[in-house]
Amino acid sequence: MAEADGALTKISRLKSPWILHYDCSSCNGCDIEILACLTPYYDIERFGILNKGNPKHADVLMVTGSVNHRNKVVLKNLYDQIPDPKVVIVVGACGSTGGVFHNCYNVLGGVDKVIPVDVYVPGCPPKPEAIIDGVVKALEKLKALQDGTWKREKEKEKEKTEKDDAKEETEEAKKEEE
């Protein structure tokens, strides 16, 4: 996928990241700060960022709050519906590690227990400037993803197992030839 796209496509991806904002079980402090970014004072729409409520339209998934047994299903469902290429930003302490709730009986932990996360924005809640920093870092990761200079852990593992399978097959074929 990455190297086959034209230059204009690559530039457009960075110039028009649409976000899906999902609140797992946050106290809404981080959500208010995210929405504050959309207000005229910070105005992230000048970067082409739009808040879409629909995973099928989104590129960036912004998650707040910690994950429990109920919303892990929802989170996975939404993550699967977002088409590639996508990045995940976790905003706030609760989403990063579970925050103050990390030992509760119903809390699984941070968002990375369910889906692969690319950028963590710690804070309780983080300032809008920090959130914007996080978005910029996510865009840099997206750029690296589409240039092929960086791969996610899961994809690296998948590639490794595929390479191993391929190696085994060629070895078996050689053995049969002999």
Partner: peptide, 10 residues
């Protein structure tokens, strides 16, 4: 093929 959007629940 993917699911319809119904706010994540099924």
């Amino acid at each position: 093929l993917t699911k319809v959007y119904s706010c994540g629940v099924e």
